[in-house]
């Protein structure tokens, strides 16, 4: 039942799969970035009252950076059953992406915060700025240009890692390749088409990420 790889049905099928790949990556990494930002800032507080939270954040980051994404996917699939038995597989995979991305992005955001020179913070302190004002008006604006390029690069990289969600049965790009091959396309055609689609997404996104890096490096002060 080998059909035409470029038939409208096949193309629509691949486009829908590509959409799921991008959805998982974008939603997962965006939420992961926001939570990662909170965790990174939390880990750099000094209040004794927050010590247990700091400890929990550190534990979280260390744990999720040391478990393969495939194992995280499987664990999330089964543990989510208790909370949300009706959640779609795509939703489950997106949670797994969020959990993994949060851990890595916490480190990326943290490195950006640490890159702001200590004297900048001391200056804010002697001018009587509050912790929050220092963060908002001095630290974050300067950390931003250090954080964004690797965070964008991470998101582009994760587009590829979501291929593992095919194991859960999410019909994303890699699984779409498998389905095409099971339908009778040759493995070279089926997987090759999928490989090209990944490259077509990843390459321009990667270029955007690195141009972001050089642009931000050029205008350090803004």
């Amino acid at each position: 039942m080998s059909g035409d790889l470029f038939s409208p049905e096949t193309l629509a099928f691949l486009a829908a799969a590509l959409g799921r790949t991008l959805w998982m990556t974008f939603i997962g990494c965006t939420i992961g970035f926001v939570i990662g930002m909170v965790l990174a800032i939390l880990r750099r507080t000094r209040a004794p009252l927050l010590a247990p939270l700091r400890w929990a954040a550190a534990l979280y980051v260390e744990t999720f950076r040391r478990i393969p994404f495939l194992v995280i996917l499987i664990l999330v699939l089964f543990s989510v059953q208790a909370f949300a038995p009706d959640l779609s597989l795509l939703g489950i995979a997106t949670i797994a992406v969020t959990l993994a991305a949060t851990a890595y992005l916490t480190e990326i955001v943290g490195a950006g915060l640490d890159a702001v020179p200590r004297p900048q913070i001391e200056s804010a302190e002697v001018l009587g700025l509050s912790w929050f004002d220092t963060l908002r008006h001095v630290v974050l604006p300067q950390a931003w240009s250090v954080i964004l390029p690797p965070a964008a690069a991470f998101m582009v990289m994760f587009v590829k890692d979501t291929a593992l969600a095919s194991h859960l049965g999410v019909v994303e790009l890699a699984f779409a390749g498998k389905i095409l091959v099971n339908k009778g396309f040759s493995p070279l055609a089926g997987f090759g088409a999928v490989l090209v689609l990944y490259a077509l997404i990843s390459w321009p996104l990667g270029r955007i990420a690195s141009s972001l890096e050089s642009r931000l490096a050029a205008s350090r002060h803004r």
Partner: peptide
């Protein structure tokens, strides 16, 4: 370098494993 880093390792291995026998 750009061919490998722009595509998922999983799909590359799909090709090595399933397509090379062709």
């Amino acid at each position: 370098v750009s061919a490998v880093t722009n595509t998922p390792a999983l799909v590359q291995i799909f090709l090595l494993y399933y397509a090379l026998p062709e």
